[in-house]
Design a protein around this nucleic acid. Sequence first.
DNA 1: CTGTCATTCAATAATTACGTTGAATGATTT
DNA 2: AAATCATTCAACGTAATTATTGAATGACAG
Lengths: 221, 221
Amino acid sequence: MSIRNPKQALYAQFAGVAKALGHPQRLELIEQLAQGPRSVDALATKVGLPIANTSQHLQHLRRAGLVTAERAGKFVNYSLADDTVLTLFASIRVVAERQLAEVERIVRGYFQARDEMEAVTRAELTERIREGLVTVIDVRPPDEFALGHLPGALNVPLSDLEARLPDLRHDREIVAYCRGAYCVMSFEAVAVLRARGFKVRRLEDGLPEWRAAGLQVETGP
Amino acid sequence: MSIRNPKQALYAQFAGVAKALGHPQRLELIEQLAQGPRSVDALATKVGLPIANTSQHLQHLRRAGLVTAERAGKFVNYSLADDTVLTLFASIRVVAERQLAEVERIVRGYFQARDEMEAVTRAELTERIREGLVTVIDVRPPDEFALGHLPGALNVPLSDLEARLPDLRHDREIVAYCRGAYCVMSFEAVAVLRARGFKVRRLEDGLPEWRAAGLQVETGP
DNA sequence: CTGTCATTCAATAATTACGTTGAATGATTT
DNA sequence: AAATCATTCAACGTAATTATTGAATGACAG
């Protein structure tokens, strides 16, 4: 790092933040952390990366001020530094969505009938919950569910979905959600349940956005 | 680039956007483009970079979908792809501001008495303009002014400020603005005018944000 | 058609980022 | 105190980015 004038130094700082987000695995770590604090090897397992590598990526994010680390006994728990990080992540997603035809193609190719699965907005869902008209299911793994979920939501991990079908009623609308707008699980859950004749829709995004909107979140199993 | 599953491909796309912003000079180019469309060598001159280098950075930004290029005769004019790019840029700035003590230090060190120069919000300024209580001065160079400026603003480029002092009145409040929150020029203008006994404040940000807020913009000299 | 100007391309050398490995640290348990 | 577990560090080879240079393209004027 050579000597710079203040203007360049400022741009260099901004660039540092962007650069920290300029890696697929680090973005995935951010999205995981958006669900709640995690230890290094919990993250490594989720993301499927070697522990040392995960640790390095996390330190990279920490240096950029995007996440914070806190020691708890043997573990080091990382969390998002604050809500603005989520906003930044969302901004990147919006730009990528609008600008890159590529993203649309990927999304369409993977999520197939994405358009046919009209998403429920947060506002609509809160209203429906108030009226007691819907069953809300959280299709994330139990550990993520325990750290926070929508009020009254049923935890039906995608892996258990088939087995849990008897718990679900055909006569009520079901709304499924998971980690966020691009989380695959709720799409898959909707597909499975539709095939079984359930009336089911997705929440437009996931728990982090719900929390960020200042809406109520329950914890515990 | 190896074969990836769709989830990884999606993160790779997002990372591509972030990576494109992960370079100080490219951020500076973005901020320049936020003022309006520019040719390659206009940008190169502004930013102080060799033309070939500037061209490459612009292409990098174009590949990421952040800017668009349009041929006009011998020139190629680049512009921001859309408003979401500005939002993204602002998000980065917010995160960097909040998270990095470093940025605060740079800002304080450079802009000295930044705190003493209370900024005027857009809302407050529109109100003041409506009441006819303020003189608004745009301290950017004339070429940027011509491409768009606040309604009724006087173009007083920083370089001409001393010479233009007679045009300014002591009995009205003056509000100065330039390119954005971190643009140096309006700070310097305020400092100069304060020293001469003018009652003067800065607009909290610059023209791009004004335009993004959907407020009226005038063009022409 | 030729010359000029703005821009892009191609090739290079220097720097920086990346993932992997195995050893080192720090905290807890026995 | 020794063993164990989670995390970090250090070092290395490989790959990707970057700035620079000079040549190539494309558009326009004469």
